[in-house]
Design a protein around this nucleic acid. Structure first.
Length: 867
RNA sequence: GCCGAAGUGGCGGAAUUGGUAGACGCGCUAGUUUCAGGGACUAGUGGACGUAUGUCUGUGGGAGUUCGAAUCUCCCCUUCGGCACCA
């Protein structure tokens, strides 16, 4: 046995052995309890980054742990392979998206294998393969048939740089989530999935996902955004038509002194036509609709609008109020029209002040008297109703229902709810994606591709346009086709592709039967494996992928294809991997290797020798250069040490700060165990580990035996309860430290069998974390089978309690002394001894004992209250 | 602005059923090792005072509940994340 652990050859060896023995392959087995462990699959961008390493290490540990606990564990991996970076890379490197993608997949697969992850590679899926996306096209057709997919013209988020439409979920702070370009509004025909049909159901079930972090379900709830309110009808002056508004504050209807319509509201044009305002309105609407989704900065908050030239009747007061169109009213929310109550809403207030509109107070805060002419801002709080006819004097909360009921009787209103969630726009004007299986015919209009013609293959030989944008509309042979309905020869295919989030909404179903060719998935396989028991991935998908996936399962459920609605029973969102940034005054951001440490606090740039400034610890990113390359970690430390550090440095849900010294520490620990194992094996090899009761063992042997049992318990609980591997590893370290205190060479027979117990448990407990290392030592101990095929170790309940306990003595809550006593000592005897303690006596001098509290729980403690 | 999470040594982090604050690791200090270096091993390490048995102090800040609070309650501050004209 070598003095040191050499990861290179050992890790290679075990990866090969696992592979040869098909150790990670699984099939449905009705006799075994299944466990579906899923990690978010990566986009094949070129290389695995450290975030993947962390994510997949966590998943791998759980997989191996569950497997040792007897579960039939499915642990698949695949590729979210469609997407824009492939197109951009193709332009940059003069290659093709397909070639680039498949090369990346091959490279990254090899990287994952080197990390020793226990994937069943037979289940690998790449979403850019026709065998995959044909079933997505098939589902699209089913959804179309059932009214779940539809096409409409409306304003959409357009990213000029990416040359495509974006879903609402893909717009972050008015910017494209990929390239940060400010998004514009563009009117286009687009395909939509009717996710809003499930808004209520998605919302309700947020509270039925106890295995999800609250922050994720809260984000989803906020995104769905249900609000309770009323729809009120305002009759248009001189017409029978009504304008319907949505409001959450019907109690303030008496204070509605004007009305605002969204610029896109159809009535804006209708009402202004033929009035003297027609020109001004047209100019305004035109200007607003060409504005970026929202201008940045202060401009955003500047409210403006124009009078549309018509009035409507306030249903509560009967008075005529002017109708405006205003930039702050959103067409997509509510009804696109609001009743403006300047006294009770800050936006309406600002608008009213700007245009000199009447402000009437209808809710008066208790003990105050607001005046519409002098109040500095709107009052939105609770209060007493005024200027509201028969409702005067009521508190405004009761008035909400009372006024709604009254207006309902008048036929002018009703209770309703409104959602923020909008339908999912899935058309993308991109090439590298799933073609939408639709044909446009001059006679028949929109015609679905017949099922038998699927898949509509994405032409993989298309020349990528150097300026970006999809080449599909330029390809006559792709576009030109016969109409399946009437046979017209000049029909054309839809040249848009689907949002890549469509692929990731169901890939985990495909894993269950990845080569199935009679449908999206084999129903029996899905019945056995689904739902996913544990999903692990980044929190950035809280309202994208995770919401879409929940939606998709509802669609499939409605279509009768599956019998569940929630895809992921438990969700773990791991934290980011962070590192400090380093900047050189001359060269800007530096990679870690571009800074050289001259002394404790002198770091210089290797290029110019100038002092380097160490910045904040932030998420690793290429642009900030604060990255570590998994390849280098593998080279320098091997997979196991890398895995160990990822788990030890922080609990999984928290951000992890990468540190060079930290990983060195993990490296040291591995070698420490290696040496301990070497020492032990000299005397322990072939010795049967002791597993009997603790009673009757000699003092040192018993102490070690108890420690080992406690360690098994602690590690099991830490993994089972919360995946807190950092504390699990700590407790193994404690056991290792204790074993180091044993004089191994002169151990007697009893001690030998306990050392054997300790060592074997260390290997079993660490094996999910550092599997190659443990397999090697396990084999060196003379074991024949794989450690992964061993059962998870158990502990003896009767070997957890040490004979002696430390009693701490406090006086008035302050620690003053301690003593040791037998574990079974009585309260009375402990109290007696505590009071007799000489240090305690000193502290009690001149005081009267008021009370003595003796606690015998996790700790044994005496608190003497005296004054 | 609204919603959420988090603030503990020089650092990463333990301890949250209220019960020895700082496990484990990093770093640092001293020592040991035929120790080139790296490494390994032993001891120490929250702060202040003290030769010392020790005393005081200490979990973002301030109040409170309690025999006892990192942990529970209230107020405030800071940082991070999400949403943001949502009527």
């Amino acid at each position: 046995m070598d003095e040191r652990y050499h990861p290179g050859s050992i890790e290679d060896k075990w990866q090969k052995k696992w592979d040869e023995h098909n150790l990670f392959k699984v099939d449905e087995d009705p006799d075994k309890e299944k466990y579906y462990l899923l990690e978010m699959f990566p986009y094949p961008s070129g290389k695995i980054h450290i975030g993947h390493v962390r994510n997949y290490t966590i998943g791998d540990v759980v997989t191996r742990y569950k497997r040792m606990n007897g579960f039939n564990v499915i642990h698949p991996m695949g590729w979210d392979a469609f997407g824009m970076p492939a197109e951009n890379a193709a332009i940059e490197n003069n290659t093709h998206p397909a070639a680039w993608t498949y090369e990346n997949i091959d490279y990254m697969r090899a990287q994952l294998k080197k990390m020793g992850f226990s994937y069943d590679w037979d289940r690998e899926v790449a979403t850019c393969r026709p065998e995959y996306y044909r079933w997505e096209q098939w589902l699209f057709l089913k959804m179309f048939e059932n009214g779940m997919a539809y096409r409409k013209e409306s304003y959409v988020n357009w990213c000029e740089k990416c040359q495509t439409v974006l879903a609402n979920e893909q717009v972050e702070q008015d910017k494209c989530w990929r390239c940060s370009q400010v998004v514009q509004q563009k009117k286009l025909y687009q395909w939509y999935f009717k996710i809003t049909d499930y808004a209520e159901d998605l919302l309700v079930h947020c509270d039925k996902l106890p295995g999800w972090p609250d922050k994720v379900t809260i984000m989803q709830k906020n995104w769905i955004g249900k609000s309770f309110g009323s729809e009120l009808k305002f009759q248009i002056d001189g017409s029978d038509e009504d304008i319907i508004v949505f409001t959450t504050r019907p109690d303030t209807v008496f204070g509605a002194t004007f009305m605002c319509l969204a610029p896109e509201h159809p009535l804006v044009e209708t009402l202004s036509r033929g009035t003297e305002q027609e020109g001004a309105v047209a100019e305004f609407v035109n200007r607003i609709s060409h504005q970026e989704r929202s201008a940045t900065g202060i401009e955003k908050y500047e409210k403006e609008g124009v009078f549309v030239g018509a009035h409507c009747i306030n249903p509560a007061t009967g008075e005529k109020i002017p109708v405006y169109t205003a930039n702050f009213v959103l067409m997509e929310y509510g009804t696109g029209a609001i009743m403006s109550v300047p006294a009770g809403d800050q936006r309406d207030f600002e608008f009213a002040r700007k245009y000199g509109l009447n402000i009437r107070v209808v809710v008066q805060p208790e003990g105050e008297s607001l005046d519409g002419n002098t109040m500095p801002e709107a009052y939105t709080g609770p209060g007493i109703m005024v200027n509201s006819g028969e409702f005067n004097g009521m508190d405004n909360k009761s008035a909400i229902d009372a006024i709604t009921q009254w207006l309902e009787m008048e036929g002018r209103g009703k209770k309703t709810v409104s959602f923020r969630l909008r339908d999912w726009g899935i058309s993308r004007q991109r090439y590298w994606g799933t073609p939408i299986p639709i044909i446009h015919c001059a006679d028949c209009g929109v015609v679905p591709v017949p099922e038998a013609d699927l898949p509509i293959r994405l032409p993989e030989d298309a020349n990528i346009l150097p300026k970006g944008g999809s080449p599909l509309p330029t390809l006559a042979y792709f576009q030109k086709t016969d109409c399946p309905k009437c046979g017209r020869g000049d029909a054309r295919r839809d040249t848009d592709t689907m949002d890549t989030f469509v692929e990731s909404s169901w890939y985990y179903l495909r894993y269950c039967s990845p080569r199935y060719d009679r449908g999206m998935f084999d129903p029996d396989a899905v019945k056995y494996w689904m739902p996913v028991d544990q999903y692990i991935g980044g929190v950035e998908h809280a309202v994208l992928h995770l919401l879409y996936s929940r939606y998709f399962m509802r669609v499939l459920n409605t279509l009768g294809m599956i019998d569940f609605k929630e895809p992921f029973t438990r969700l773990l969102t791991q934290g980011m991997v962070c590192k400090e940034t380093m900047t050189c005054p001359e060269h800007g951001y530096l990679f870690p290797f571009e800074a050289e440490r001259k002394s404790a606090d002198n770091l210089v740039c290797t290029k110019c020798g100038k002092p380097v400034e160490v910045g904040r610890v932030i998420k690793m990113s290429k642009s900030k250069k604060n990255v570590v390359d998994p390849n280098e970690l593998l080279e320098q430390y091997g997979a196991d040490v890398t895995r160990l550090f990822c788990l030890f440095a922080a609990p999984p849900e928290r951000d992890l700060e990468w540190s060079e010294e930290g990983i060195e520490g993990s490296h040291r620990f591995i070698n420490r165990v290696w040496r301990l194992a070497g020492e032990c094996m000299k005397v322990v090899k072939g010795v049967t580990p002791y597993t009997g009761p603790a009673d009757g063992l000699s003092k040192d042997a018993k102490a070690l035996y108890i420690k080992a049992n406690q360690t098994v318990k602690k590690v099991t609980e830490d993994i089972e309860k919360s995946f807190h591997f950092n504390t699990a590893i700590s407790s193994v370290m404690e056991l290792v430290n204790m074993m180091y205190t044993v004089d191994i060479e002169s151990a007697d027979g009893e001690m030998k069998s306990i050392l054997a117990f300790g060592l074997e448990n260390i290997l079993l407990l660490l094996s999910p974390i550092v599997p190659h290392f443990c397999e090697e030592l396990y084999a060196l101990m003379g074991k024949e089978s794989f450690i992964l095929e061993q059962g998870w170790p158990s502990f003896r309940e009767d070997a957890l309690q040490t004979d002696e306990v430390v009693v701490v003595i406090q006086v008035n809550g302050k620690l003053r002394s301690k003593f040791t006593t037998g574990a079974g000592a009585s309260k009375a005897s402990i109290e007696e001894r505590a009071l007799a303690d000489s240090k305690i006596q000193k502290h009690l001098e001149g005081k009267t004992i008021r009370k003595v509290i003796v606690i015998q729980k996790q700790q044994t403690l005496v608190n003497i209250v005296a004054n």
